[in-house]
Computed example of a mutant assay.
Amino acid sequence: MSWSYLGIAVVFEIAVAISAGKAQGFTRFGWTAVTLLSGAIATYFLSLALLTFDVGVGYAIWTSVSGVGIVILGALFFGQRLSLSKFFGVALVIGGVIGLRLSGAA
């Protein structure tokens, strides 16, 4: 169940990043509200996952997978360029997450 909680936390953390970009420095109320609500939900589900995961491992996986998701969505939907160096960085992050998983994290 902890992996499900972590997955939900990742989805909402991605929503935080996207909505924070749209909030334009918290000057747009609707996007600001979405940012804060998504952040609260992401943090709640992360805290549930951390009942099973080591804090360092759970947090590292959460931030890493969220970051990869944001980069991919940025390239697919927001016209952000996915250069070879970004692609290589994403591959390294994915490799690190796999390594943490293989280390016996939850």
Rank of each mutant, 00 (worst) to 15 (best):
Q80H: 01
W3A: 06
S4M: 15
S83W: 02
T32G: 04
V71M: 09
A40P: 01
Q80E: 11
W3D: 09
I98L: 07
A9G: 11
I14R: 00
V57W: 14
F29T: 09
I94G: 10
A75G: 06
G56F: 13
L102C: 10
T35E: 06
V68N: 06
I94F: 08
G30S: 12
I61A: 07
G74C: 07
A15S: 14
A60M: 05
A33N: 00
F26T: 01
K86L: 07
L46Y: 09
D54W: 10
G58H: 07
D54M: 13
G99W: 15
F29H: 08
F78V: 02
L76A: 03
A75D: 00
F45H: 00
V10A: 05
V93S: 05
L84Q: 10
F12P: 07
F53W: 15
S83F: 03
S19R: 04
R101S: 15
L76G: 02
Q24T: 09
F26E: 02
E13M: 10
G89C: 08
W31E: 01
S83V: 05
T27D: 00
S4H: 15
W3E: 03
A15C: 14
G79R: 13
V34S: 13
Y59P: 03
G67D: 02
I18C: 00
F87A: 15
V34R: 13
A106V: 15
A49Q: 01
L73C: 12
L50F: 10
W31L: 01
T43C: 13
S66K: 08
A49F: 09
L48M: 07
V68T: 04
L36M: 08
S38E: 02
A20H: 05
G95A: 10
Q24A: 11
G95V: 08
G39N: 01
S47M: 12
F29R: 06
F78Y: 06
